[in-house]
Nucleic acid binder design. Structure first.
Length: 598
RNA sequence: GGUCUCGUAGCUCAGUCGGAUAGAGCAACAGCCUUCUAAGCUGUGGGUCGAAGGUUCGAAUCCUUCCGGGAUCACCA
């Protein structure tokens, strides 16, 4: 079935041709959803046509409206307000539309066709020296959701994680553990592995600062003190030993990373996210070094007297970018070049997307150019899904000031809040503790995920931990609640032996809130397409909130089970069921689960 | 300083490929549960869309300048 707005568009072009003997370019025809305060379903803006009609806006709209009414069976009425032509579609059209989508239980989702694109999407990308925090949560939720949306638009998403498992920061934790732990393991203290290792990272910083202070006191300059502090010197030695493959260092490194991975896995599991492949920087950085040295030989890159390898991007309006240190060791950019190449060999992607914060916009600009200059034709298919920072009411999160919102703690607090709220409402009597816990979990994560994903990804957002996250209004639980309402109604219908209700017929007239709902159903396809193009889940959040609100209005205004006209009852049950289905599908694109009761 | 980005109600955010009287939620206030789950619904108040110019029939939206916040310009990641 052709989308009706396209049908109208074609008809408008035809109308201008017939009425005014003129060809309108397609992009001049703007068909929009009619705003709520006016009558109608679709609105045609007639201002662009005045140069053809040579008449007033109102008169032009009038003539156009009459033409469309006469020539399109779907259009039964129109009104003109200040040059806006509002078209009303027949109830018959809406019923036909509904019957068509109603048979499609996965309405909104596209299946893969032959032309599908493979999109590799990197997200999460943690360092292994500290646990995940709120910023990572935004990253993880975005990566997961965008992957789901890419799949929903009929393409293939390959979810990959790049773990930054090597470098000076990990050595810091290792050194602190060596000196301070007395050989203790996470199990000994009943601490999650990532938190355990993170604590030693903090401990390192504390001791390091003390050592600097002591040196400064005895007359050393601050810069010198930073360099010469005992623990820093030892850490650098440790890094060198790691690169040389020193057995003891490698063993400790592996042990501590494994603790961290165990912790990460728990957090990922709680968040409900996963990966198709995990890359480790320790396994890709050498490849980066190789290709850089090769490119240096080919004259693509330059080298300074001290041995630094760099690329001159001043012509591109950027700077000189160093790709290898003077001592030949690898940098962040070095390994990212290596990883990108390996990733292409692994998947032959049509697009390689990186979900990384906007503080790295520059990095990805450079990465693309460097790979392009090195002659990789797929460099242009690299994209950066850049998202804004999560700020606290008083500013940025700072680990040194202890204002970092820890991911695990946040999730636990959300679950606690969901529990309190739920028990206060007392709707879950008769459920086992296990069932209740499962519902609390779904609500808590629904609240958290929706709260973060409803904000436009590229914008910075503020997170207020004191107020926590609301469960009323434009929130995940509100949408879940709407779903639950529908399920409750469907259950009651079944109890009344109404099991088949998609066969409604002989309906002459639809109520306003029914048409509004159908209009929302109509929008769903476009919304998913837009979210896919923009790589932005918030488009879907706005939509599903509107849908839920629209349904609640319908629910209050019209009887469903109590409706005596059997066909109307069936129609309304079908509308309810469809609303529930769309909510479920939309929320699933966020990784939000729906409870059956709450 | 160069580059990028953001600035919409007290707060958090929609709306930004130009379209009607700029919308939601929270917070405040007033109503609605003997009737399909009140985590809901209805209503009231709240705005010089950072400022000034410009383009246009029409600007929160596009252009210029300015003001204010943030990011980035590392041999950190």
């Amino acid at each position: 079935m052709e989308r009706i707005d396209n049908t109208i568009k074609d008809a408008v072009i035809n109308a201008i041709n017939q009425l005014y003997n003129a060809e309108v370019p397609v992009n001049q025809v703007s068909i929009k959803k009619t705003r709520k305060e006016f009558d109608g379903d679709f609105t045609v803006v007639v201002f662009p046509f005045l140069r053809f009609s040579k008449k007033t806006p109102d008169l032009t709209a009038e003539e156009l409206g009459n033409f469309l009414k006469d020539n399109l069976t779907e259009v039964v009425d129109f009104n003109v307000i200040k040059g806006f032509l509002n078209l009303t579609l027949s109830h018959h059209y809406w019923l036909d539309f509904f019957k068509e989508i109603n048979s499609d239980k996965s309405y909104g989702l596209k299946s893969k066709n032959e032309k599908f694109k493979t999109v590799v999407i990197e997200y999460s990308s943690p360092n292994t020296n500290k646990p995940l925090h709120l910023g990572h949560i935004r990253n993880n939720l975005l990566g997961w959701s965008v992957s789901k949306i890419i799949e929903a638009t009929g393409n293939k998403a390959v979810k990959v994680n790049l773990v930054n498992d090597r470098g000076i920061h990990i050595c810091k934790s290792m050194l602190a553990w060596k000196y301070l732990s007395g050989g203790k393991k996470p199990e000994d203290e009943n601490v999650k592995g990532d938190h355990f290792v993170g604590d030693y990272y903090v401990a390192f910083d504390k001791e390091y600062k003390k050592q600097i202070a002591e040196l400064v006191k005895s007359g050393t300059s601050e810069d010198e003190a930073k360099n010469n502090a005992q623990w820093m010197k030892e850490t650098r030695t440790m890094l060198k030993e790691w690169e040389q493959g020193n057995e003891g260092v490698r063993t400790l490194w592996k042990t501590m990373n494994d603790w961290v991975y165990k912790g990460f896995d728990q957090t990922y599991k709680k968040l409900g996210i996963s990966f198709d492949k995990i890359y480790y920087e320790s396994e890709t950085y050498l490849r980066g070094k190789d290709v850089i040295l090769k490119a240096l030989k080919e004259g693509i890159l330059q080298q300074k007297e001290d041995g630094t390898v760099f690329i001159d991007l001043t012509k591109e309006g950027l700077d000189e970018k160093v790709l290898l240190r003077s001592d030949g060791t690898a940098l962040y950019m070095t390994q990212d070049i290596g990883t990108a190449i390996i990733r292409y060999e692994d998947f032959h992607f049509d697009e390689s997307a990186y979900v990384v914060g906007n503080e790295q916009d520059y990095h990805f600009k450079v990465l693309k150019i460097v790979l392009d200059k090195m002659g990789y034709p797929w460099a242009n298919n690299i994209s950066h899904i850049s998202y804004g920072m999560v700020e606290l009411p008083h500013g940025k999160m700072k680990s040194r000031e202890g204002t970092v919102v820890d991911a695990d703690e946040l999730i636990e607090e959300m679950i606690q809040t969901a529990k309190e709220k739920s028990e206060e409402l007392g709707k879950l009597e008769g459920f086992s503790q296990e069932e209740k816990d499962e519902i609390f979990r779904k609500i808590a994560l629904g609240a958290l995920k929706y709260f973060i994903l409803k904000v436009d990804a590229k914008k910075n957002m503020t997170f207020n931990p004191e107020e926590s996250i609301d469960f009323n209004g434009n929130t995940g639980p509100f949408i879940q609640y709407t779903y639950v309402r529908v399920q409750s109604m469907l259950t009651k219908a079944k109890e009344q032996d109404i099991s088949e209700f998609n066969d409604f017929e002989n309906i002459e007239k639809l109520e306003e809130s029914e048409i509004s709902l159908l209009n929302k159903f109509y929008d769903f396809e476009e919304v998913i397409a837009e979210a896919g193009e923009k790589r932005n889940p918030s488009v879907i959040a706005n939509y599903v909130y509107d849908l839920a609100k629209e349904y609640n209005r319908f629910y209050h205004e019209l009887p469903v089970l109590k409706e005596e006209n059997i066909n109307l009852q069936k129609l309304r049950l079908s509308l309810s069921e469809k609303t529930g289905l769309i909510i479920k599908i939309a929320l699933d694109l966020f990784g939000i689960e729906v409870p059956e009761r709450m």
